[in-house]
Computed example of a mutant assay.
Amino acid sequence: MPLLGFGVFQTPPAETRDAVAEALRTGYRLVDTAAAYGNEREVGQAIGDSGIDRDEVFIETKVWISDFGYDETLHAFDKSAGKLGVEVLDLFILHQALPTAFTTTIAAYRALEKLLADGRVRAIGVSNFMPDHLARLMENAGVVPAVNQVEVHPYFAQPDVQAADAARDILTQAWSPIGGITSYRDTGTGSVFDDPVITDIAAAHRKSPAQVMLRWHLQAGRSAIPKSVKAHRIAENFDVFDFALTAEQIKSIDDLDTGVRGGPEPDDVTLEAYGRDIPEA
């Protein structure tokens, strides 16, 4: 699994196909999507049209909470695989923990374990799981999640989640890795792109703030899945392998953590508030 991937969260279906095609031309070989994004079909079309061998592209997608439950999650796989146009997924993830109905979460994860045992997925994981969610899951699971995809950027690093992941050899994958959520959602922190610590480091390396933040993730051993629909940004976000941050620079970025979450509080995610129907393939 490549550490640096391409995300399509909130990318309209009409723009997804071209964006993923551009990302694949640029060199990305990991694409992250989700049933709830409504653009799995376009992701699959871009990959299928790329001419790149299927084994060279790592595809991950996520089960939405409306499809939690053992049989429901098995069917969710069929829906996602059908839209993506593949028989095997590289990584299949539970999108949320659904704490108010955790028995349903456990049933969904057992379905992932079944898919893994049957060879229909190559790895399974979770998203937005806090340490207590992981602990409860592992009391009932036989397979440790390969990945926990959570909000991580310089203003919200979630060190407790990262530590809980590391203790179980779970790879932390960062969504909103360059703090885009701080630009469009009022968190009271301002945009991380304008932070002088980030901009000064960027100037020192003749790189952009986004490139500095992505390098920060990679040097920490995290996976990161930046998103964009602009060709020059897609290319810029991939151009992060020709420089290295110093230990002092990494610490200065680490110290920016405000503890302020941009996304939904995981314990507030309920079917009543966030449930939605996921269409058939």
Rank of each mutant, 00 (worst) to 15 (best):
L3C: 00
L3F: 03
L4N: 11
F6V: 05
G7S: 13
V8D: 01
P13A: 04
A14N: 11
D18H: 09
A19D: 04
A21Q: 07
G27M: 12
L30S: 15
T33A: 14
T33L: 12
Y37R: 06
Y37H: 12
G38F: 13
E42M: 04
E42R: 01
F58N: 09
E60S: 13
W64Q: 12
W64E: 10
S66P: 11
A76Y: 11
A81T: 02
K83G: 01
V86P: 02
V88R: 12
L89W: 13
D90T: 06
L98V: 02
T100Y: 01
T103E: 14
L112M: 10
E113G: 01
K114G: 00
L115K: 03
L116N: 06
A117K: 03
D118V: 00
V121W: 01
G125N: 05
V126N: 03
D132N: 04
H133S: 01
H133T: 00
M138G: 00
E139Y: 00
N140T: 04
N140A: 13
A141K: 08
V143W: 03
H153W: 12
Y155S: 07
P159A: 02
A164W: 08
A167E: 15
L171P: 10
Q173R: 07
Q173V: 11
W175I: 00
G180F: 04
S183V: 02
V192W: 11
F193Q: 10
P196T: 07
I198D: 12
T199W: 11
D200E: 14
I201T: 06
R206T: 00
A210Y: 07
L214A: 02
L214G: 05
R215M: 13
R222L: 12
S223V: 00
A224I: 05
A224N: 09
A224L: 14
K230G: 06
K230Y: 14
A231E: 10
A231M: 08
H232C: 02
R233C: 09
N237I: 09
N237D: 11
A244V: 10
A247G: 08
K251C: 12
D255T: 07
G259N: 07
V260W: 11
P264Y: 01
E272H: 05
A273S: 15
Y274E: 11
G275E: 06
D277L: 08
I278E: 15
